[in-house]
Every structure is written in C-alpha cells, then in structure tokens.
Amino acid sequence: MGHYTTVMGSLESFERGHLSIIDDDPKHYCYSNVFEVASKSRPYDKVAVAKNLDYVIEAIRAEGTSDWFAASHDEFVVVMDGEVTVSFVEPGDSVIARSKDGTQRLPRPPNGKKMGRIHLKRGHQALLPKGAAYQFSAARPSVMIQQTILGDLTQQKWAEICTH
C-alpha cells in the first residue's frame, strides 16, 4: 500500500493552482486563495472570497485579539492555519440588531455572563451561535474562513484578490 502525505496550505507556505481559460471570462471564476488574501490583510479584516447572493465566505487573518462581534444568525469558522481561541459572552447591554445580517461589531465589550471558550487548531470548525458575542485571539498569525451573510464589515475587493 502506498504512503500518502496530505498537503495543507499555510500563511508561510501556499502555492496557488492555475486557471486556464479556453473560452470564457476569468472573472466569472472569482479565483483566489485564502492564504494569499490573509497574507495581505490586516488582522480581523473580513475579506469576501466567495459570494452567493447574500451569503459570503470571508477570509480572515487572525492575529492578536479582535474586537467583539456578534450576529443575528448562526455563523461558523474553520481554521485553515494556526491556532485561534474564541471567547463567548452573552451580549448583556450590547444590542445586536435583529434586522441586520452579517457580522456586527459590538460598540463596547459585552457585559453579560461568560459562556466559555473554544480553542481551535488547523482543520477545526466552530459554531458562532446566533446572539452570542464572540472575540478571537491568536498568539501568532493564523487564517480562518467564516461562513456568514454579507454585512457591514464584509470587505469586497474582488479585483485585488481574483485572477482576471
């Protein structure tokens, strides 16, 4: 039986594939790479790398401690490189706009009850439950993708990140 090595990417070591156009517009494929996007991002910038009408996948460089965030719907993160801790607190006096989609930045740290923490490594996926305030921290630069809805914090820079 052969020996297999599973290849994963990282901020320090990634190699993009290749888009070859035969008869189409390369823009239609929105071809990018989350490690490359994160390598050029500021910590906790939420850069859309995929968009399906109102829904997005954002590439996030996790480094240091983030602001506090929340959403009126479930969100999810998958760590693609490094290690990230997520702290969860009830929002308390911080109001989460129910009518607003996407990640919301809380104007001040939440003062509700502490809910707990999750320590994530590469390949781990966490639920960011609807209505809970959460904060990321990473001791060294790490990369996450976040499944959410297009929101005020989503950055769209397709011309910068995509092959065209």
Partner: peptide, 26 residues
C-alpha cells in the same frame, strides 16, 4: 492517515452546556 485527530478544546461555563460547539472538521 497523517491528518491530526485531536479535537477542539471546549471550556463551557455552567449553564451554557450544549450552547457552544466545535469539531475537528478535517
């Protein structure tokens, strides 16, 4: 066979059991 099999560490405060969730997707 070389994919790490460790699970995320979840520290839940009393009263929030079942509210937080994470898995090793890989």
């Amino acid at each position: 066979a070389d994919v790490p099999q460790d699970d995320p560490v979840i520290e839940v405060e009393p009263g929030f059991e079942g509210k937080l969730h994470a898995i090793n997707l890989f």
